[in-house]
């Protein structure tokens, strides 16, 4: 019941999705699933201390992906990207925690794996920009948009994190 009230509150006041309640959208791409890197990736976000609030394996439609990547529609690689992302399984996730959008980008590393630092997901596991394993929202606004696109409200879970006391002051 408290979770329900908090959820309603968070939806009425979007600024409630800030601080430790900030959320981001992440997707393990078809290359990441094929190479069996899902567990490794989930583990990295868990180990950092972020809270998993939604997770599912999907084959995304081209329609959804065209909307997801709408900001890149003028780019020459847009069609190829949409086709690739719809070609196989994707693990879609929503993670919550302090500054999670920015921190996730740090955990993921630079878009081009050649520039991505060791210790980051792309730095450790990727060779080429066309197969860079994972997508992460690039801003808080994009995160809101992407979460709403990929997940129904009922799929976003509200649960009390027993580790919260040891992650935040």
């Amino acid at each position: 019941m408290i979770c329900l009230v908090l959820t309603i509150f968070a939806n009425l006041f979007p600024s409630a999705y800030s601080g430790v309640n900030e959320r981001t959208f992440l997707a393990v791409k078809p290359d990441g699933v094929q190479r069996r890197l899902v567990g490794e990736i989930v583990r990295r976000f868990e180990r950092k201390g972020f809270k998993l609030v939604a997770l599912k394996l999907v084959q995304a439609s081209e329609e959804l992906l065209r909307e997801h990547y709408v900001e890149l529609r003028e780019k020459p690689f847009y069609s190829r990207l949409v086709k690739y992302m719809s070609s196989g399984p994707v693990v879609a996730m929503v993670w919550q925690g302090l500054d999670v959008v920015h921190a996730s980008r740090a955990l993921i590393g630079a878009t081009d794996p050649g520039d991505a630092m060791p210790g980051t997901i792309r730095g450790d596991f990727c060779m080429e920009v066309g197969k860079n394993v994972i997508h992460g929202s690039d801003s808080v606004e994009s995160a809101h948009r992407e979460i709403a696109l990929w997940f129904r409200e009922a799929e976003l879970l509200c649960w009390e994190d027993s580790a919260g006391h040891w992650l935040y002051e």
Partner: peptide, 23 residues
Amino acid sequence: RLVGTVIQRFERRGFKLVGMKML
């Protein structure tokens, strides 16, 4: 926070993930 570890064990064994969701 053992979800990733569990998934990894099944992936490393070689099994194929055909369905997954959190509920």
